[in-house]
Design a protein around this nucleic acid. Structure first.
Lengths: 249, 249
DNA sequence: GGAATAGTGTCTATTAGACAGTATAGA
DNA sequence: TCTATACTGTCTAATAGACACTATTCC
């Protein structure tokens, strides 16, 4: 930790001298691409005093007190800057804060995760000259080479996503509309990492009532499939049971 | 907002002038007491410049960069100060951060919720001369008179608790060990606000495997009941289905 | 017609929920 | 013996999972 930086953060509050932690926001952005669950990473700058120069990291950064009215605004701003996506599914994941997670001093980050479809003109690069790219989640979590504590954060995000996919309609947010039930099923299978029975899957999805028909969609296979859109693009539906094969959770 | 205070937070970082948000931690502490779900509140101080003087609020406050190594340490410290409980069940709830939630300036709070049993010498008052008391959750959420945005935070905490109680063993953390299955069932019913069938309840609890027998517990009723302790006091068990009466979610 | 994928029907083991019944204590 | 509570047994409707079957398109 740089003592100089830390000292410069001292200031007066309520008559005593306090040091304020840094406040940052990070976003774990998921999509399904090339039959795999992928995460968006950005390369850290290499300027003087920059921590983890050249390392890949989750997109994020300091809260801009002047520009951001709320934490969620800040997260959506960073998401828009990196992906161009305006209103994806966004859910708070948690907080990571400690004296040692950032070499510049005590910092706390507010982490959300976002689900977007890969088709929507994603990957705006060059805005601030930062490299941006999709990475397969499994490869990244294996290597554990991300900046800061982002490996831990990504691991927590993947765990949360996988567990919620067992009993919610979350994977629908990973697809561009309209999508077909076979496409949705593939999204489930990719995130869960195991096959899902077609008949039960279709029954469950249609019974949950979160899909509305949107005409037949030709292409990609022989027989056209019925397309669907989400009734509500803001919140997933919760199923009363988890997906689980006979005889055990 | 006090401009003087806000100005005093400006400082140099990376060559430009930034203003740092305040970083706070709040804890929603639940227990079951007098056949009701209750939450611990503290009364705000009335000193000069104190926001919401005399108002009831969730226990919490600024992160102490010198004393707290991590956000969780900070939450556990505040919890210990108010209740004397050393290692309760503690779960991150989320973050609330905006320019306007604290009149002193941009602030972000990291909120956890804790489940404790009311019997363990709870309610240490006078340490910092702050008033501390249990309040029935339903009454507090009706009145909506808490300081800051704590009504919103409490509402979110109750919603999270109620929804997780449908499919986890969380209410077990609200009871002192050893507890009986009828006591545990009552805890479920109090949090859920509806009766639960005894037979199905017992089957589910015992099948989940998170309880170990701890001898018969006399008292409070005619026939003594078998007491149980938790196998793991750190994490709840997740059931494969929710509690739900026939024919509806 | 063949291949490939979309979509449906059917059977069965499992089980949650409902509720009646039994067991064990105190008074 | 009566009452209150702890605990168990039984029945049944609902359904998830498994898998076979039909339908519709392209080639």
């Amino acid at each position: 930790m740089t003592q100089k930086t830390s000292a410069s953060r001292r200031h007066v509050r309520q008559g005593s001298e306090f040091s304020l932690p840094y406040t940052t926001v990070d976003v774990v952005i998921f999509t399904v691409l090339d039959n795999a669950l992928q995460v968006l990473l950005v390369q850290r700058p290499v300027g003087a005093g920059e921590p983890y120069p050249g390392c890949w990291a989750l997109p994020g950064g300091f809260v801009d007190v002047a520009a951001d009215a709320t934490l969620e605004d800040c997260a959506r701003r960073k998401l828009l800057e990196k992906t161009g996506v305006k209103s994806p599914y966004l859910e708070q994941l948690g907080s990571w804060g400690s004296a040692t997670r950032d070499p510049r001093g005590w910092s706390a980050t507010h982490v959300s995760f976002a689900l977007i479809s890969a088709q929507n003109g994603v990957l705006i690069r060059g805005a601030n000259a930062a490299e941006v790219a999709w990475f397969e989640v499994d490869a990244v979590t294996q290597n554990r080479g991300l900046a800061f504590d982002h490996d831990d954060i990504l691991e927590a995000a993947v765990e949360r996503l996988r567990s919620k996919v067992e009993y919610t309609s979350l994977p629908a947010f990973l697809l561009p509309e309209p999508f077909t039930l076979p496409q949705l099923q593939r999204a489930y299978e990719i995130v869960l990492g195991r096959p899902v029975d077609k008949s039960g899957f279709r029954t469950r999805m249609l019974a949950a009532g979160f899909l509305k028909e949107a005409g037949y969609v030709a292409g990609e296979s022989n027989r056209p499939a019925l397309g669907y859109r989400l009734v509500d693009r803001h919140a997933p539906v919760v199923f009363p049971r988890t997906f689980s094969p006979r005889g055990g959770n």
